[in-house]
Amino acid sequence: MKAFTQHRGLVGPIDRANVDTDMIIPKQFLKSIKRSGFGPNLFDELRYLDHGEPGQDCSSRPLNPDFSLNQQRYQGASILLTRKNFGCGSSREHAPWALEDYGFNAVIAPSYADIFYNNCFKNGVLPVILSEDEVDTLFSELAAADGYQLDIDLASQTVTSDSGQIFNFSLDQFRKQCLLEGLDEIGLTLTQSEKIKQYEIEREKSQPWVYGAIK
């Protein structure tokens, strides 16, 4: 798994709540059997004026000038600043794949949908939770300054702005460790193989119907 330790980068905004994963990566791109290449279609329906299909060359498609991330000043953004309940809806991991492929290393929002939040950690994308007031502050600072950047440090769990303001965020320690070290979670779980096998032996004794029927 890809690690995340610290990151300094340009901030790009999507100033709306409840951005769902259908919006992040529309369904027609889910037909791919690959994990990569979703970046050009991130936010496809908001980003382009025409209808996108997989395999298209996106460089010649008409851009929607009203979509924030299309503005010149946000080109190269690697931190997405957005509103509450980001990533709601479908469980598609294509959403963090697309964010990552586009170039986002982190998202900052007041809250996330559970499945999306979880999926981010598997892909080296850090979902930072700050309070609504703090996110408001960041939106104001971003609006006021071209080239607005933030520093995110996972070990100290802080977001630092150039004005020197420090915002603390919390997250699960296990997830933090996995992300810091880029751990292979499957490998980690397999170190507990004996426990899993023991569990299955006990379970089969008490609830035999769980096993064997599907073949």
């Binding site: 991991e93 979670e185 779980t189």
Partner: peptide, 12 residues
């Protein structure tokens, strides 16, 4: 679950 977890469940 997401696809990484699909793999995790398949494997473990």
């Amino acid at each position: 679950i997401g696809t990484s977890e699909v793999e995790h469940v398949l494997a473990t």
